[in-house]
Design a binder for these strands. Structure first.
Length: 263
DNA sequence: ATGTCACTTACGAAGTGA
């Protein structure tokens, strides 16, 4: 079973890339972020034609998340607990059934939070607290669970080419990293870091200033595994080459392989 | 060199978010 996450920066702008990458990497489940469209505008048909079931939690203009799954969805639930007034489409949870039991997957788009002196940062920190509360509840189920998406968090200095450039940024502030550690310390395993401690592993490169050409990137897209999922870890990787395609997203896909049979 | 991209309104170009 292969599960992947990708911030596509508009699914309609990136449809050709998405289809090409799905054929190449052949993931069983895909978590998408920044689809930037309402549910009705999501390009379901070309993805269903590749054998995927599609679940969408979109909104006009900004944000928006989705899930693609070769396994049928048993349950789908949009929205993160903890703030009924939050209208931003950033969270979509689904349950699927494998040969050996259930698998729970979340596609999440954690708020950017810049500039840190504004309510945008408060919203980010509150969102992280809500995510941790959600995770604490779900871990009680003792299921294989994957929290996948664009976390907008650089966990450690090793996750940036130039950490000094990010010290005042909402993605790298001590408070941000502290909240991320609180989530991790519930018992999650970072899939990419579980298989490699290499420097230079990034998932995002700014469009500006030739950042990709200089590998001036950051690692902010993460696949976090519950203990019951981590027990099945086989491999994980970053599809960096996709950033070199024409008119790319500023993020690239990240995937994990688990030795769980689909059906 | 904040050197880019995507979306919106509304028909050209500016504002927003990242």
């Amino acid at each position: 079973m292969r599960i992947a996450t990708w911030n596509v920066n508009s699914v309609r702008q990136r449809l050709d890339h998405l289809v090409a990458w799905l054929k190449e990497r052949e993931p069983d489940i895909v978590c998408l972020q920044e689809i930037k469209c309402v549910d009705d505008a999501f390009p379901r048909e070309p993805l269903e034609a590749l054998g995927y079931n599609v679940a969408v939690h979109g909104q006009k203009t900004f944000n928006g998340v989705a899930l693609l799954s070769k396994l049928p969805f048993d349950e789908v639930a949009p929205g993160l607990i903890g703030d009924d007034g939050d209208v931003q489409a950033r969270f979509l949870e689904a349950l699927v059934s494998t040969k050996t039991g259930v698998l729970r997957v979340v596609s999440l788009y954690l708020p950017n939070g810049n500039p840190p002196t504004t309510e945008k940062y408060t919203y980010k920190i509150n969102w992280m607290d809500r995510l941790t509360n959600f995770a604490r509840e779900r871990l009680k189920l003792e299921e294989p669970l994957l929290l996948c998406g664009d976390y907008n968090v650089i966990p450690t200095p090793a996750d940036a080419k130039r950490p000094e450039a990010w010290v005042n940024d909402a993605l790298f502030l001590p408070k941000t990293r502290e909240k991320f550690r609180s989530l991790m310390n519930l018992g999650f395993t970072d899939a990419v870091r579980a298989v490699s401690d290499s420097d230079g592993l990034f998932t995002f490169w700014d469009y500006q200033a030739g950042a990709f050409q200089k590998n001036d990137g950051i690692r902010i897209d993460h696949l976090l595994m519950s203990p019951q999922a981590a027990d099945h870890l086989v491999d994980a990787g970053i599809d960096k080459h996709v950033r070199g395609w024409e008119k790319p997203s500023d993020h690239v896909p990240v995937y994990v392989d688990l030795d769980i049979e689909g059906r």
